[in-house]
Structure formats: C-alpha cells, structure tokens
C-alpha cells in the first residue's frame, strides 16, 4: 500500500506543523515566482518609467502593452512561436511513435541481439549531446538540413530515454492481456495499436510532455544549426532580442514574457503529468 503523504513530522502538533510548512513554502515560492513577476512588471512599464529606480517600483505606474507591440514589430515573434510549436509537435509525435514501437519487442519478445540493443540504448543515453553535435551538425549540413524544420527535429526525433520509458510502461501491462489478443489471432502491430497504446496513455502523455519541454527549451542545437531568422525558435528569438538591442530591458522582458505564455498555458494543463511522469521516469529509468 502506498501513502499519499508520509507522516514525516517535525512538530508534534498538526497546526504547528502546517504553519511552519506554509511559512517555509511561501518563502520558496517567492524565490521561484518572484523573478517571473518582476520580469512581468518590467515588461509592462512604459518608456517614461525608470527601470532602475531605487527603491524599486514594484508595479508599473501606467501598465502598457507597448513593449509587446514593439517586440512583435521589430522581430517576427509570432513566426518564432509557430516554428517552436511546429518543431516541438513533430518531435513529440516522432518520439512517441518510434519509442513505443521499439519498446514493444524489448518489453515482450525474445530475439537474438536483444542484449546488444539494450547495451546500445544505454550507451546512447550516456553520450552527451555536446559530443555528438559536431558530427550531427556536419551530417545535417551534408543532408541540406541547415535552416530547416527537419534539421531542428533531428536530435529530438527519438530518444533512448523514451524507449526505456515506454518499455517500462508496456511491462506493467499484464502479459495475459496481450496473450488473450494473440489467441484471438490479432497481429502484433494491431495489438500494439489497439491494446498496448490505449493502456499506456498516461505514460505516453508523460513522455509527450517531457519531450515537448525538452524540445521547446532547446537552445544549443538551434543556435548552431539556424542562422536564418525565418527558422528561429523562441529561445533563439529571445536571445537575439537580448543581444541585439543594446539590452533594452523593457523589450527583453516583453519578448521573454511572450515566449513564456505558451509554455505556462501548456504547463497549466499538463502539470500533473510532470509530477507523475517525473516520478515514473526518474526512479525507474
């Protein structure tokens, strides 16, 4: 039996316990959310306000969206947004597809070379992308994928982590359920699609969320692959903003806030998968 909360107590009284927990957590929340709020406030301040006033001005005197308008006018941020979304969407779909396909035989079939596949998968999890990026970059250039969506997707299209993650999920399905389908004369591909995938929806969702975040926040790979702004993703766009405007913090703040809105919405809807998924993936994987 699992507990939702382990009875780890510091104070004997439940009231004292709750009180000190809330106090400590409030402080930690200030540390995590504070910077975001400060940036939001900055992004809403008009040109007349002194950003560096001492003491700081917490709320904009006259909140304005001017900075956002200027950001979108000076740089194609909606284009960046679309690029980010497109690349992340393709990456997630590919990763789910390839990982769950490969996970099936690794979870449920015996075949020569199974051990070797495991070793290769583990090895590919150990290799840092920074070692790979030079050859992958050369490969992408050779294939004509510089400044292309496919090039951006390339390193995210399949992850060994995803394969292991889905293998774990498949192994949790009772063997007899799959055997029942086999007895009914259903082919393995149909079993994968109609039985295994529907039964691992939570894991698929968690993996989707993880690969989405990884791809969405990726910076190093787009940085070396892309030099045409038409293919910039949001992190590149934000970076360009910070680098190109002799650091006008109003604009940088607005651009950064802009780039965060989609992920905040996404996080709001999927936050339970982060916690659950991290739990599954981290402890097992």
């Amino acid at each position: 039996m699992k507990t939702r909360t382990s009875p780890l107590r510091i104070f004997a009284s439940p009231w004292a316990d709750a009180a000190w927990r809330y106090a400590a957590l409030l402080l930690m929340m200030a540390v995590t959310v504070g910077p975001f709020l400060w940036l939001l406030s900055t992004s809403l301040k008009g040109p007349g306000e002194n950003l560096f006033a001492m003491p700081p001005v917490w709320l904009p005197a006259e909140p304005t969206l001017d900075n956002f308008v200027r950001v979108v006018e000076t740089q194609p941020f909606f284009r960046y947004l679309a690029n980010s979304a497109l690349v992340a969407a393709i990456s997630v779909v590919l990763n789910l597809l390839l990982a769950s396909l490969a996970a099936y035989p690794l979870a449920r079939m015996a075949f020569p070379g199974r051990q070797a596949v495991f070793v290769l998968l583990l090895a590919s999890m150990m290799v840092p992308f920074q070692l790979l990026m030079i050859p992958v970059y050369e490969l992408a250039i050779t294939l004509g994928l510089a400044n292309s969506y496919l090039g951006l997707v390339l390193p995210h299209a399949c992850t060994a982590f995803g394969v292991f993650f889905m293998r774990q999920a498949f192994q949790n399905i009772p063997r007899a359920v799959e055997e029942a389908a086999i007895m009914e004369g259903i082919g393995r591909l149909a079993i994968w699609w109609h039985v295994l995938l529907p039964l691992t929806k939570p894991s698929l969702a968690a993996l989707a969320v993880f690969s989405f975040i990884a791809c969405w926040g990726d910076f190093l790979w787009p940085l070396i692959l892309i030099d045409e702004p038409a293919y910039f993703t949001l992190p590149l766009g934000v970076n360009r903003l910070a680098a190109s405007f002799s650091l006008d913090w109003r604009l940088v703040a607005a651009g950064t806030v802009f780039s965060m809105i989609p992920i905040l919405i996404f996080f709001g809807f999927t936050q339970r998968f982060f916690i659950e998924g991290a739990v599954k993936g981290a402890v097992k994987g």
Partner: peptide
Amino acid sequence: IRAVLYLPVVTSLVVSALLWKW
C-alpha cells in the same frame, strides 16, 4: 504549491538566464 515550485523546470534555460541577468 508543488506546481509553482516546479515552474522554473519547465522554463527554458535561456529565459531563466535572462530573468536572472535582469
């Protein structure tokens, strides 16, 4: 509260770095 504490994790590192640079 858990979600709020997790927020920096989902934020891209470029954004986090800019937040702190500010």
